[in-house]
């Protein structure tokens, strides 16, 4: 498969969030503001990139029977590293994302890419795949973050959008708003994809 095709697949047609619905926990939990969403997306992309590279390099040496525990150890190592970097350089973001940083380990997206792509393909292909999927994930997260932040706080990336008369809808920043906003966005995305398929 051509590299450009591998890359673009993760962005739209196989989008990990809107189409495959993978890694739902962080998608819903940390998207109350656009900035948090972006941080989470970047952290997940770095872990995905690291794990895809290492797993594709080791794919001939990992016995197939114990491959899942091997993948998990590789992923957990990168998650620990990303967690330490966030703690050292971005303490506020680390505080906001909280428990969802260590939980990147069990993000089905990362294990899914390791199992279905990196363990079968070359390193260059796996890097492209990780970037495509990672950016597709980040893009979807930021989109959801923007929608929730605009309705819930009346801001985007902490910039005030409306005048004083704007009443923010606090529900959007809480759990029910997360579920409903993602449901509606997913339906909109489906509509666009269906239209393109026709």
């Amino acid at each position: 498969m051509k590299l450009s095709k591998i890359f673009s697949r993760g962005l739209v047609m196989d989008n990990p969030v809107f189409i495959q619905a993978l890694g739902m926990c962080p998608i819903l939990a940390v998207t109350n503001t656009a900035f948090n969403s972006f941080g989470m997306g970047m952290a997940t992309t770095s872990v995905l990139l690291g794990s895809n590279i290492v797993i594709s390099l080791l794919r001939k040496f990992i016995p197939s029977k114990i491959r899942i525990p091997c993948f998990i150890v590789v992923i957990a190592t990168f998650v620990t590293m990303v967690g330490m970097i966030l703690e050292a350089y971005f303490p506020a973001l680390n505080q906001a994302l909280g428990i969802f940083i260590p939980l990147i380990v069990v993000n089905c997206l990362i294990l899914g890419r390791a199992e279905s792509f990196a363990s079968k393909n070359s390193t260059v292909g796996s890097i492209t795949d990780a970037l495509g999927m990672g950016l597709g994930f980040t893009g979807a997260l930021v989109l959801l973050g923007i929608v929730r932040e605009v309705i819930g706080f009346g801001t985007v990336f902490d910039m005030q959008l409306f005048g004083d008369s704007f009443e923010p809808m606090a529900l959007m920043t809480m759990a029910p708003g997360a579920f409903m906003a993602l449901g509606v966005l997913m339906a909109v995305f489906n509509r666009i994809v269906y239209a393109r398929l026709k």
Partner: peptide, 17 residues
């Protein structure tokens, strides 16, 4: 048809939440 599957499930989960 756009709401079939995951979208309607998520909105339902929102109401439960």
């Amino acid at each position: 048809v756009e709401f079939k599957g995951f979208p309607i499930a998520l909105i339902t989960a929102g109401l439960m939440s």
